[in-house]
């Protein structure tokens, strides 16, 4: 990890809020700007970034470790290289062990950004990332729903208690005007990145990165990145 400048964990207290979609799209956006980007899918039991990226038939190279293959200009690592179509039922300790193993053997070389797609919640993977990747920063995803923010609030409080850098909060699947999330986030002294809309075109663009970038969701996320990530 020595050559990796920025590690950004895309995280949330809740599942289904768009972490994987945002992590994947963010990685593509940064790669297109000319940065050296890696994407690491750490949601071992429910990996999904490979579907969003339309990454098929990839295999990492072995060379004193594992060199992630490239897709859309991104160095991409996922457990699906090893589990294929199979379910991988893992308990907490197994998740930790697999995570440590993959971190130890993956050779990213030099990267401007390593984007990590996290599983939901504040369980094993989150605690392990905090433990092992001292320079990790979090990009936290929520939806406008109070239910989502109830868990996101706890994640934000935990991170701030631990002194972990939160680069910002994205409010995804925005459907109507409201200030609730923005106020809650800014009230905590955390940067509110902005809102990405609920966009029915996203589903059709899954697996097609070019199309994804041209959706309203994609172009707005690109604006948020330009504005907030420097």
């Amino acid at each position: 990890m020595k050559g990796v400048n920025n590690v950004v964990a895309v995280s949330s207290g809740k599942g289904g809020v768009g972490k994987s979609l945002i992590a994947s799209t963010l990685a593509v956006i940064l790669a297109r700007k000319g940065y050296k980007v890696g994407l690491f899918d750490l949601d071992f039991t429910s990996p999904s970034t490979h579907v969003i990226l339309g990454a098929e038939g990839l295999q990492p190279k072995e060379e004193k470790g594992i060199i992630p293959p490239e897709v859309h200009g991104i160095k991409y690592m996922s457990i699906v290289y090893y589990s294929g179509e199979h379910a991988v039922p893992l308990r907490g300790a197994d998740i930790s062990n697999a995570l440590i193993e993959l971190f130890a053997i993956t050779r990213w070389n030099t990267l401007d950004f390593l984007i990590i797609d996290m599983p939901p919640g504040i369980s094993d993977a989150t605690l392990d990332i905090i433990r092992f990747v001292k320079k990790v920063k979090f990009l936290v995803v929520t939806t406008p729903s109070q239910l989502a923010f109830e868990t996101v609030r706890k994640l934000l409080d935990l991170l701030s208690e631990l002194g972990i850098n939160v680069v910002g909060v994205v409010e995804n699947m925005k459907m109507k005007e409201s200030q609730f999330i923005k106020q809650q986030v800014e009230g905590r002294g955390i940067t509110f990145w902005g809102e990405t809309p609920f966009d029915i075109m996203v589903e059709e663009a899954i697996g097609n990165v070019k199309k994804l970038l041209t959706t309203e969701f994609g172009s707005i996320l690109e604006e948020l990145v330009a504005k907030n990530l420097k």
Partner: peptide, 13 residues
């Protein structure tokens, strides 16, 4: 080979 890289993959097979 998959288990060789990540032993926890054994849970898939």
């Amino acid at each position: 080979e998959a288990i060789h890289f990540v032993p926890e993959i054994a849970h898939a097979y």
